[in-house]
Simulated assay, not measured.
Amino acid sequence: MALRSLCAEVSDLCIGKPELKWIAATASLAEALAALKASGEIYISVWVCSQNTAGGSCVCVGKCSAADVILFLCREDNLADPFKALQTPVCDILPKGTPVVRHVTPNSSLLEAMDYILEGTQNLVVPIQKRRIYYARKRLDNQQQLSSCCHEQHECCWLTQEDVLRFILNSVGSFSPVPTYNLESLSIIDRDIMTITHNKPASSALGYFRRAITEQKSVAVVDEENRLMGEISPQTLAYCDETAASAIMVLSAMELMAYIDCGSPPPEDLVQLVKTRLEVRNLSSMVDLMDESIHPSLLCCSSSSSLSSDDDFVPGMSRGSSRHYAAARCEPLVCSPRSSLLAVMVQALAYRVSCVWVVEDDHTLVGTVTLAGILSVFLSVADGIHSKS
């Protein structure tokens, strides 16, 4: 029964999934941010299209979020002129190495999909039906310089680790008794964690923030006794706008958590503190960016905007779509080393997080459990059943 559940086709998981929103790899980061803000998504797919073959062809080569743009602006060579940095093509900031996005056929098995995920894939692109897509790319400088193309392409959706885990949850009883085992007995606690002491500059963890995006983990903010105080996650950064780069560069880890807390607008005193510290560091262009961009708090609260004309069209957005940003979870989700696998699995899915922190009773940090780690347990169960059959 367990093996049968994992032999389902990935198309079974696509039922009800929305059409994938996308932008061209040649689009600028400014255009990517506009598409993200308009689409209501925290990630948007990035595609490369070729006209060299009959009818043309397109391939998804990655994904982009506001977190990616924020960390790109934090690079030393971009701080002096962030506006120029925002004209960088999206393809230039895509991670190298193992692809985080992979195309699969609709009849690919769930077992195959899980293998890809454990190899480092974050999103699986699945064709839904064939259709002709027309799209136009518009410069954000309103010069009406449009380039357009049409090509044969599949309407696609994409599947995440969360989608796969939700599907398994529907038949979790067939994996009994493994879901009732505790985390320690299953040896899935990842002790290779990223931490920063609360009073340290947030910028000292830039390498960790970039790694967190690649590995779909979070950075723990701890006290001097390694007790968990909070977290800075890629999801939380993805709910902010590009001005969060300024906060990362001049605030401490604890101050940054308060600044990007998506339950409320950044405190005005912190906003002013960021500007003052930027001026001291002669980063007036970053101050200008804060003044000209949408206030970060607007992206952390529900809002909507609709398109009314061709002049408003941006890549990756369907006509008439709205922007709805739900508040990101800013309090870290925790469990005990003695928690059951099923309890942690339900906890992660309920709060839509990619990892759950494992702590002792005194809140001392032990490690983390990731969605990929949980998936590896179910895959191991299936492999064991298959080897016995």
Rank of each mutant, 00 (worst) to 15 (best):
R137I: 08
Y239L: 11
Y43P: 01
I248Y: 02
H154N: 15
G263T: 10
P18H: 03
V274C: 06
Q143M: 11
K63A: 10
S339A: 14
N226A: 10
W158M: 11
E215S: 13
L371I: 11
P267Q: 01
E225I: 05
S339G: 07
E76C: 04
E292D: 12
S297L: 00
V104T: 08
C157G: 02
I188F: 02
L283V: 03
D190H: 01
S233K: 03
S252L: 03
V359P: 02
A80I: 08
D383V: 14
V90R: 09
P95C: 06
A328G: 10
L379P: 01
C335G: 01
C49Y: 12
I294M: 09
F378Y: 12
E184Q: 11
R352N: 12
G230Q: 04
D190E: 06
Q51T: 12
L86K: 05
A2C: 08
S28F: 01
L3K: 11
M249K: 10
Y135Q: 13
A253W: 01
L365G: 06
F313V: 15
G16F: 05
A326S: 11
F313D: 11
D261G: 01
A27M: 07
A205W: 02
V164S: 02
N170P: 00
R166S: 11
A245S: 15
M1Y: 10
V104S: 06
S39T: 04
A35G: 15
D77C: 10
L165G: 08
K21P: 09
G173E: 09
R4T: 15
E152H: 08
L283K: 15
D115V: 12
A244D: 08
L183Y: 05
V334Q: 13
I93F: 10
C262F: 00
L36M: 07
I260M: 07
P337A: 06
E360L: 13
Y134E: 12
S304C: 05
Y134V: 14
A54K: 14
K388Q: 14
R166A: 12
S50K: 08
L36E: 06
S285R: 14
C330D: 10
C58E: 10
C330K: 04
L20Q: 14
I133V: 14
E155M: 10
T98G: 04
E119M: 12
S109R: 10
Q143S: 15
I70S: 03
I42A: 07
V48I: 11
S305E: 13
C60M: 09
R137T: 15
E162Y: 09
T88C: 06
L278M: 03
S246H: 06
P296R: 04
N107T: 12
G367H: 03
M286R: 07
V314I: 13
L159W: 04
I385W: 07
H363Y: 15
G207V: 00
S233Y: 03
I70N: 01
A205P: 05
L206I: 14
A35W: 03
R210K: 13
I70E: 05
S203R: 07
K17D: 05
R139S: 13
H103S: 11
T197R: 13
Y181W: 14
C156Q: 09
V358E: 06
N226H: 14
L270Q: 06
M229W: 05
E152R: 08
P179W: 06
K275W: 00
S302T: 10
R191Q: 13
P201V: 00
L79C: 12
L86I: 06
